[in-house]
Simulated assay, not measured.
Amino acid sequence: MIPANPGYAASFKKTNKNMGNLLPVIAWDDEGHALVLDEDEGQLVRASRFSNFDGVTYDANHYIGAIHAPGWKIRWPKNERQPEDIVDPLIGWAIRADGTGIPLALDVDGFIEPVSSQFDPEIIRP
Rank of each mutant, 00 (worst) to 15 (best):
66 A>V: 11
65 G>P: 05
42 G>C: 03
11 S>E: 15
12 F>R: 07
66 A>F: 06
27 A>V: 05
19 M>I: 13
118 Q>R: 11
40 D>F: 06
32 G>P: 00
101 G>M: 15
81 R>P: 01
48 S>N: 10
5 N>Q: 15
56 V>M: 04
18 N>C: 08
73 K>R: 14
126 P>V: 02
12 F>P: 15
82 Q>A: 09
38 D>Y: 00
4 A>F: 12
37 L>E: 09
104 L>P: 07
7 G>W: 00
114 P>Y: 03
115 V>Q: 06
95 I>A: 05
56 V>Q: 04
117 S>F: 10
114 P>M: 03
119 F>V: 13
102 I>A: 06
5 N>K: 15
93 W>R: 06
30 D>L: 04
88 D>L: 14
112 I>T: 14
76 W>E: 12
1 M>G: 01
112 I>W: 08
62 H>G: 07
60 A>Y: 13
20 G>R: 02
102 I>L: 14
114 P>Q: 06
17 K>Q: 14
109 D>T: 09
85 D>F: 08
6 P>I: 07
116 S>H: 05
36 V>M: 03
46 R>D: 12
49 R>Q: 14
53 F>H: 09
126 P>E: 02
27 A>I: 04
7 G>T: 01
112 I>C: 09
123 I>K: 10
45 V>C: 01
40 D>R: 10
115 V>F: 03
10 A>G: 07
111 F>D: 12
116 S>W: 07
108 V>W: 12
47 A>M: 01
85 D>L: 02
119 F>T: 13
79 N>M: 04
114 P>D: 07
61 N>K: 08
45 V>G: 00
120 D>E: 15
55 G>Y: 00
111 F>Q: 13
38 D>M: 01
94 A>Y: 02
94 A>H: 02
79 N>W: 05
71 G>S: 06
82 Q>K: 14
40 D>L: 08
12 F>A: 11
63 Y>H: 12
73 K>V: 03
63 Y>C: 11
104 L>K: 06
77 P>V: 03
94 A>I: 01
122 E>S: 05
38 D>A: 00
18 N>M: 09
66 A>K: 15
25 V>I: 09
56 V>D: 03
92 G>A: 04
101 G>Q: 15
101 G>S: 12
76 W>S: 10
32 G>D: 00
70 P>W: 09
71 G>D: 10
70 P>H: 10
11 S>M: 15
2 I>H: 11
46 R>G: 03
17 K>L: 14
28 W>I: 03
69 A>W: 10
114 P>W: 02
46 R>I: 05
24 P>F: 00
59 D>E: 11
105 A>Q: 12
12 F>L: 07
42 G>P: 01
75 R>S: 12
22 L>C: 04
